[in-house]
Design a binder for these strands. Structure first.
Lengths: 210, 210
DNA sequence: GGTGCTCTTGACCAAATGGTCAAAGTTGTT
DNA sequence: AACAACTTTGACCATTTGGTCAAGAGCACC
C-alpha cells in the first residue's frame, strides 16, 4: 500500500541527503532557538536553509519532525558534561570542572541552550519523558556520588539536587538570557565569559570546600 | 476624523471595564506565560477569560496591546526587590534578604517570571529599551553600592554584576524551569522552596562573608 | 543514450488566526 | 419611560501557515 511516500528513509543514504538534512537542521536550530516552536514557520526555516518549503518536507515529514530531530540530537550531548563527573576524582575539583564545562557549553552552543530553555519554560511538552527518564536517573546517580563525597568529609555538606540546579541555572543564564547580560554589561564579544568563569569558580569553591 | 473607534479609553472608567480588563490580563498572563507570544492565540485568551474574541478587541486594540500591557505591568514590580537593597544596611544580610525576596517572587509569581523569561530568551524584542534603560541603571547603581561595601571590608570581594546575575538565575530557575525541577525532585506542592531557600542562603552566605 | 531513481518546485488546499463591522442588547441618567 | 452611552457578539474577511501533489530536473548505472 501507499506507505512512506516522500521520506527517503530514516537516516540519510546519499551524500546529497546528508548535506541537506544537515543544512535543514542547522537552519532550524537558528530559527527555533530564536522564536520557539510555535513562533517559527516552515518558510522561515526554508529560507534560512536556502531550500524551498516542499523540499524541506521531502526530507522531514513535518515541522514537528524537524523539531524532534533537533531535540533528540541535543539531548544526547546535553548530559555529557554531567556524565563526565567521576566518583573517584577529587570532589571539589570534579565539581568545579563540571561548572566550567557547562559554562563552556553555554558559550559554544547558546542556540542549543535556548532551544532547550524554550522547551522547558513552556512546560517541556515534547521532552518530559526524557527528563523524567534519562535525565532524572543520571541526576539521581550523581546526587548519590555527591552525597558519598560529603559523607567522606571531602565536600562541605550541601543538598546535591539544589547544587546541581544552581550550577545549571548560573551557567545557562549566560546563554539563555544573553540579551539581558549583554544589555547590562555591554561586553565586547565573549569577553564577559572570562569574568563569569572566575566568578563561578569562586562561588562554588567557597560553597563546596569543607 | 475616525479616531479610536473601539477603545473605551486608555484606562478603565466604568466598573465593568475595570473588571473585564483585569479578567483579560489575568487570562492573557496564563496563556502567554505558558505558550509565549506567538504560541498564544486570541481565541485561547478569550476562552480563558470567558469572553468572545471581538469583546477582547473592544478592550484592547490588538493582541500585541494585551501583551504590552502585561509586560508594562510586570516591569513595574519586577525591580522592586532590587530597589529595596539599602546601602546603609548590613551588607551580607541585605543581599541574603534580596535572594530570599527574589525566591519568594519565583514562588508567588511564576507566571510573571516565565512571561519575562520567554521574552528575554527570544532576544527581548519588546522590552530591550526598558532593559537598557531602567534596569541597567538600577543595576549599575546597586553594583556601586556593592563595590562600596567591598571597599569597606564588610563584604568579600566579588564582581557585583555577576553576583546579581547568579542571584537572578538561581532564584528564577525555580519558576522558569519549574517543569524540570518538579520532574527531578517530585516535590509535594511547593515543599522544595524551603530547601531551595536554605540552600541559597548557604551558597550566598559563604560567597559573601568576608 | 535510455531507464529508473533521487531530488526539486510552482501551484494549490484547508485550517487557523488576527482583526473588522454592523446590529443587537445593557446600563445609567434624567 | 426614554434617550444616549456602553457593552457584546455572530458573521465575515484577508493573511498566514502546515502540508500535498503532480510534473519536471538531475543523476547514476547499464
Amino acid at each position: 500500500m501507499g506507505i512512506e511516500r516522500h521520506m527517503p528513509g530514516r537516516q540519510p543514504r546519499t551524500r546529497i541527503q546528508k548535506k541537506n538534512t544537515e543544512t535543514i537542521l542547522e537552519a532550524a536550530l537558528d530559527v527555533f532557538s530564536q522564536h520557539g516552536f510555535r513562533g517559527s514557520t516552515l518558510d522561515q526555516i526554508a529560507k534560512a536553509a536556502g531550500l524551498s518549503k516542499p523540499n524541506l518536507l521531502y526530507y522531514f515529514p513535518s515541522k514537528v519532525a524537524i523539531h524532534r530531530a533537533l531535540i533528540d540530537e541535543l539531548m544526547q550531548n546535553w548530559l555529557d558534561p554531567l556524565r563526565k563527573i567521576e566518583a573517584d576524582g577529587e570532589p571539589v575539583e570534579e565539581l568545579l570542572a563540571y561548572v566550567l564545562r557547562k559554562l563552556e557549553m553555554a558559550r559554544e552552543y547558546p542556540r542549543e541552550s535556548r532551544l532547550f530553555a524554550n522547551e522547558i519554560v513552556q512546560g517541556a511538552p515534547n521532552i518530559m519523558d526524557k527528563i523524567e527518564g534519562e535525565l532524572k536517573s543520571l541526576v539521581d546517580e550523581k546526587a548519590q556520588v555527591i552525597d558519598g563525597w560529603i559523607a567522606s568529609g571531602a565536600l562541605a555538606p550541601v543538598d546535591p539536587y539544589h547544587l546541581i540546579f544552581s550550577i545549571w541555572s548560573t551557567t545557562q543564564h549566560y546563554a539563555d538570557f544573553d540579551a539581558q547580560v549583554r544589555a547590562i554589561l555591554r561586553p565586547e564579544g565573549d569577553a564577559h565569559f572570562e569574568d563569569a568563569a572566575a566568578y563561578l569558580d569562586t562561588l562554588f569553591r567557597r560553597m563546596l570546600t569543607p
